[in-house]
Amino acid sequence: MMSPNFTSSAVKNDIGQTGLIGSIMKDDDLIYSLAASGDMLFTGTDSKNIRVWKNLKEFSGFKAKSGLVKAIIVLGDRIFTGHQDCKIRCWKLSSSNPGLIKRNGSFPSLTDFLKSSIKPKNYIEVRRKRNVLRIKHFDAVSCLSLNEELGLMYSGSWDKTLKVWRISNFKCLESVDEAHDDAINSVVVGFDSFVFTGSADGTVKAWKRELLEKGTKHSMIQLLLKQENAVTALAVSRESATLYCGSSDGFVNFWEHGNQTLSHAGALRGHKMAVLCLATAGNLVFSGSADKTICVWRREEGGIHTCMSVLTGHGGPVKCLAVGEDHGTSTVSDRKWIVYSGSLDKSVKVWRLSEQHAPDLKEIQRGFLTRDKPDQDHKERTNEKVWHF
C-alpha cells in the first residue's frame, strides 16, 4: 500500500513532448542512487530502502539490513547494490511475480570468504593496525560498474581499493590495493579493455585489463588527471570513445581515445558547484550538480560540445542520473531519451529530451528548461575539496 507521504505527478496528455514529464517523491528518503531497466526504475536511499517504480508509481521494494545505498546496477533479473556498510549485495526478481524481490547473495560468496580466511597471506593491514581480508571491502562501497560481455563487476570503495568480481559465483578475482591515495568515488568500464577510476585524491586513472586462466590482472597504463579538486563522477560514451570526468570545482573534463591511449580534448564549464553525477546517451552528455541543475550537452562533429539546455527544478543537489532511449517517440533522425534525475530533495524527476532540438523555455510541473549559457564567471566557482560522495 502507498504510504500517505508519497506524491507523484505526470504531464497530462503526454504526446511525446520534450521537457519534464513527471516526478516522484517520498518524504522520508534522500535519493543517493538509481538505475533504470525496461519499464522499471530502482532508487537507493539513505534509509536502506531500494524502491521499485513503474509508470511513476511505487511498484515494489526491498530493504537491506544496514547501509545507505550508494550504488545500483541492474543486469536482467538481478540487481546489485553497493552500501555504506562496506557490503555488495545481490537481489533477484521472481520469475513468477515481478513484484517479489529476494536477496540472492553478497560479495564475496560465503564459500570464497571461508576459503580465503584460512590463509594469513590473504589478509592486509589497514589503518590502526587492523587486519582485514583482501577480498572484502573495509569501507563504504561508493561505485559499481558492469562488463556484461565478460560477466565481470567492478567495485570502488572509500578504502582506496578497486575489486573485480565474477558475477556468476560472487568470487573476487582481483583486488587492486591502494589503487588511489584517497577514496575512490567512481569506476566505469570503458572501451578497448579499459577501466577508469576517479578519486577524492584528484586523479583519474586508466587501467588495462588482462584475462588470466583463473582471474584478471589490471595494470595502470595512464594517469589522465591530477588536480587539487576531488574527482566525483565518471561516464563513458561508447559511440564516440570518450571519457568524461566531473569534479568538485564544477568542471567536466573529457578525453578522446585513439592509438591505444587517451588524449585530453577539453573541459565543459556549466556549473557553479561540484558535479556529482554524469551520464551519456547517443550524442548527449548529462551533468548533475550540487547547484541543483542538470546541464545537457551535445557532442558535435570534431569533438565540440554545445550546452543545449539547463534543467532546473530540483530543490537540492542532483546526486544521480540514469538514461534510457524512449523507443515510443525516438526516430532514426531524432533520437529521444528518458532521463531520470535523483536528488537530495527526496525527489526523482523524469525528463524527455531530444538529441536534435532543445526545448523552448517553459515550465512544466514545477520543472524548468532554459537555454541559458553555462556560467563563465570562474570567480563564482567553489574550489572547496569534496572528499567522499
Rank of each mutant, 00 (worst) to 15 (best):
D14H: 14
D28C: 10
L30D: 10
L34Q: 05
T43E: 07
T43C: 05
T45C: 12
N49K: 05
K54H: 08
K54W: 07
K65T: 11
L68Y: 10
K70L: 14
K70H: 13
A71D: 05
T81R: 05
Q84L: 12
W91T: 03
S94R: 07
L100C: 13
K102R: 09
K102G: 07
S106V: 03
T111I: 09
S116A: 12
K119P: 03
I124G: 07
V126F: 02
L133Q: 01
K136A: 11
H137M: 08
F138L: 04
L144S: 01
M153C: 01
Y154D: 00
Y154A: 01
N169G: 07
K171G: 04
L173S: 09
D182L: 10
T197Q: 06
D201N: 12
T203Y: 01
E210K: 11
L212I: 07
L212D: 08
M220C: 14
Q222N: 14
E228D: 11
A241Q: 14
A241V: 06
S247P: 03
S247R: 02
V252G: 00
G258H: 09
A265T: 01
A265W: 00
A274F: 07
L278H: 00
N283D: 15
L284C: 11
F286D: 02
G288Q: 03
S289Q: 08
V296E: 02
R298Y: 07
G302Q: 02
H305W: 09
H305C: 12
T312C: 11
G313P: 10
A322S: 15
D326L: 08
D326N: 06
H327Q: 13
T331F: 12
T331R: 09
S343T: 06
S347H: 06
K349A: 06
R352P: 06
R352V: 03
E355K: 13
Q356L: 15
H357P: 06
A358S: 15
D360S: 14
D360W: 04
T370Y: 12
Q376S: 15
D377C: 04
H378A: 14
H378W: 05
E380R: 15
N383L: 15
E384I: 11
